[in-house]
Computed example of a mutant assay.
Amino acid sequence: MKTFHCNRCSQLVFFENVRCERCESLLGYVPELAEISAFEDAGEGRWRSLHPGANSALFRQCHNYAVENVCNWMIAADSPDTLCRACQLTRTIPNLATPDNRFYWYRLETAKRRLLYTLAALGLDVPSRQADPEHGLAFEFLEDGGDGSRVVTGHDNGLITLNIAEADDAHREKVRTAMGEPYRTLLGHFRHETGHYYFSQLVENNPRWLEPYRELFGDERADYGEALDAYYRDGAPADWQASSISAYATTHPWEDWAETWAHYMLIVDVLDTATSYGLALLPDDPTEPTLTDRTPVEDASFENLMKRWFPLTYALNSLNRSLGIADGYPFTLAPRVVDKLRFVHRVIAAASDRSQPLQGSAAVAPPPADAHTARLR
């Protein structure tokens, strides 16, 4: 995530901000520019962008921005849409009559928009179900029923369902501890589930990638239900860290891909943020890890990403330990895991149209239907 500034007063602002704290200008994200813009009121529900790249164009707030206060994206003033490109992907929202659900909805949408920003930067923006009813992506944010029925977070043919309880920090931490997971975040859920979606888009029916995928991750034709039962019965192999990014990745080749995809998204997003802020590591001791490279992540080779990633995580974990909190990056990347991450990088690079990073690539096939509880978050 790059840095943003108010176009009226140059104050540093963030991706989620709706108002500049210094000059009080309305702020909104313009996906066509991939920028946060400051706006001035143009009357009749229209707002004039102050961003130099917008040429004073007029915009409207997304309905979920103007009315529901869970969004901050803008729509061209002459567009017939009432929802922004991000909110159009949400097919079912939580029941707002239930206490706290509006807050959970806000958190879900915030995490989803961060995911979409990264996908767009990599040339992997996706169509909504409205634009592509057969292959478009859609989200449902559901809660457990009062009758004891449970909502299972998962992916099925482009429809991603998330249990809104994952937006509750206390609940998510309780589940993380019970599952013995080192890391579980709301954004990680979105990354993981879209990994399943992109497996079908980019790998499943692509002869170029399918066999190399099977060599690295295994044969995805193995029975998923049996694999899931075996994992919950027996757990992961004792040596799982030698070949997998997480214990849950050992469940089935589909899950190995989704966990690896999610981890690649994590790496790209964190490096993009560090690069945008001009973060450098220049230790007095030349034998300690250094970091000076500021190559944009969308232009970087995989080797470049890895060369920068290890020093950054060393510094991140050292800072966390000084604060007395757990490591921010509790992972070890074995050579086999690095090979899998490299494969994800190659697939994305081949599929992306970097000349038009916001246009998105068309889906090529419906993803495999599966229902599972995603684990690495």
Rank of each mutant, 00 (worst) to 15 (best):
residue 181 E to N: 13
residue 8 R to G: 09
residue 303 E to R: 12
residue 318 S to T: 10
residue 357 P to D: 07
residue 68 E to Y: 14
residue 341 L to H: 10
residue 236 A to I: 10
residue 368 P to S: 02
residue 148 G to A: 05
residue 299 D to R: 15
residue 335 P to D: 02
residue 355 S to T: 15
residue 73 W to N: 02
residue 168 D to T: 05
residue 362 A to Q: 12
residue 238 A to K: 10
residue 38 A to S: 15
residue 282 L to S: 11
residue 290 T to S: 13
residue 152 V to Q: 08
residue 336 R to C: 00
residue 183 Y to A: 00
residue 293 D to K: 07
residue 204 E to T: 00
residue 334 A to W: 08
residue 44 E to Q: 15
residue 84 C to T: 03
residue 347 V to E: 04
residue 162 L to H: 15
residue 377 R to C: 02
residue 33 L to T: 05
residue 302 F to H: 04
residue 164 I to F: 07
residue 160 I to H: 02
residue 70 V to F: 00
residue 160 I to L: 14
residue 198 Y to S: 05
residue 120 A to V: 12
residue 76 A to L: 13
residue 180 G to A: 04
residue 322 S to A: 13
residue 180 G to T: 04
residue 117 Y to F: 14
residue 195 G to W: 12
residue 69 N to V: 11
residue 11 Q to Y: 06
residue 74 M to E: 05
residue 325 I to L: 04
residue 318 S to P: 00
residue 12 L to Q: 11
residue 138 A to V: 05
residue 363 A to H: 15
residue 111 A to P: 01
residue 75 I to V: 09
residue 237 P to D: 02
residue 193 E to I: 06
residue 61 Q to G: 01
residue 182 P to Y: 11
residue 224 Y to V: 09
residue 42 A to I: 07
residue 166 E to F: 15
residue 176 R to K: 13
residue 66 A to H: 12
residue 60 R to D: 04
residue 365 A to W: 09
residue 98 T to E: 10
residue 198 Y to R: 03
residue 223 D to H: 07
residue 336 R to G: 00
residue 103 F to E: 15
residue 230 A to V: 01
residue 1 M to V: 14
residue 50 L to F: 02
residue 292 T to W: 03
residue 191 R to C: 05
residue 119 L to V: 01
residue 19 R to S: 14
residue 71 C to G: 06
residue 154 G to M: 13
residue 237 P to H: 00
residue 184 R to L: 05
residue 65 Y to N: 09
residue 46 R to A: 15
residue 366 P to Y: 06
residue 26 L to M: 12
residue 120 A to M: 15
residue 349 A to Q: 15
residue 222 A to Y: 09
residue 191 R to D: 11
residue 350 A to K: 01
residue 153 T to W: 04
residue 92 T to H: 15
residue 334 A to G: 01
